[in-house]
Design a protein around this nucleic acid. Structure first.
Lengths: 192, 192
DNA sequence: GTCGTAAGTAAACAGTCGTGTACATGCCTC
DNA sequence: GAGGCATGTACACGACTGTTTACTTACGAC
């Protein structure tokens, strides 16, 4: 006899999976806007509409919560398109897809905290740079992957994090063309 | 009445200017290493060898201290060399000069804090992008300045902040050549 | 029905934070 | 030498932090 229509009010409906993912979603949102240090577990819990002690229950600690937000990141969708259109694909993913820049911005904003810093580096190396270099292929796969990282880290920092005037208005289009060409050039080095 | 306390330890020699600059130096070091949020006024005072209340006396508040660290930054030395060697000059400044990357890293590491964020943007626009665009000259001065910012922000982030494997070893030399060429190309657009 | 356990709650813990205040004292001026 | 102000010190305040504990309650198994 389910009493689904009974909003007894004080108690939240019990659903561990839903609660866990609500916390995770809230954490991704806050970590990628305020960074690790400026996001409290109570902030996350409030945004998720959840008691703050549940953060500890489901993720062990704030560090565990940050690790969990890293684990859901997956760049493989970016590497599934046509190599000859990689630059354009990256542009549309990062510029036109809401929240696509979140994970990278989160890691940069959280780099000041030692624990988050270590986790971010480990993740970036294993789950981003290695797959990206493997996808790029010879020659100089790792170094070309690093160049791509430089370009996009710089762009997202200058656009989202410390927004520059020229990237906030119409001139963005011109920068986009330059960035797309530079990105594609790095990929195309492998297909000489 | 309890016994009067033991005599105070020998007091620091009185020199307001020296104290102020000691605090400022410590703040620059810590802000550019741990960021604004993860640096406490007590940390700054301890590193400076100074009582923590003096931070408030000399800089009003932590925000005031951060503003003071921004005010001493000056990019004009970077714009005094030969335009045809700008890329190489930037390389040697940022890669071979200890602490040259400090201010930019500090701003990125501190971007999570709202107050520091606002101050950094204001400073970056007025004291970096505007002079840089003026120095670059037509055509598209502001946009080319933004491109340079993207390149160097990305490089310093990938090198100092979230260090990538290829930038930590010998392959750095190859990335340096690429970055130098890309930098010089942006400058040379203005000299048809 | 009842009962054990998972799910959720409230409160408190021990720190740290930025800041303000009350006090001590060295140094300069007279 | 004496006063006074700048300099430096010690400490407390309230607010916030991450985490833990003790407790209540809903839900599924029997």
């Amino acid at each position: 006899m389910p009493r689904s229509t009974e909003p007894k009010k004080p108690t939240r409906k019990r659903d561990a999976d839903r609660t866990r993912s609500a916390i995770l979603d809230a954490a991704r949102t806050l970590f990628s806007t305020r960074g690790y240090a400026n996001t409290g577990v109570r902030d996350v819990a409030d945004l998720a509409g959840v008691n703050s002690a549940l953060v500890g229950r489901y993720f062990g600690s704030k560090e565990g919560l940050y690790r969990a937000t890293l684990e859901v990141i997956d760049i493989s969708p970016m590497l599934r398109g046509d190599r000859r259109r990689f630059g354009a694909d990256m542009m549309s993913i990062f510029c036109d897809t809401e929240g696509a820049s979140g994970p990278l911005v989160m890691m940069i904003l959280s780099a000041a905290d030692p624990a988050a810093h270590a986790m971010s580096i480990e993740f970036l190396q294993a789950k981003v740079m290695v797959p990206l270099a493997r996808w790029l292929g010879p020659p100089n796969a790792e170094e070309r992957a690093a160049r791509l990282n430089i370009l996009w880290t710089g762009f997202l920092t200058s656009w989202k994090l410390l927004p520059l005037q020229p990237l906030a208005d119409a001139r963005l289009a011109s920068t986009r063309r330059w960035l797309e060409a530079a990105t594609q050039a790095i990929v195309d080095e492998g297909t000489g």
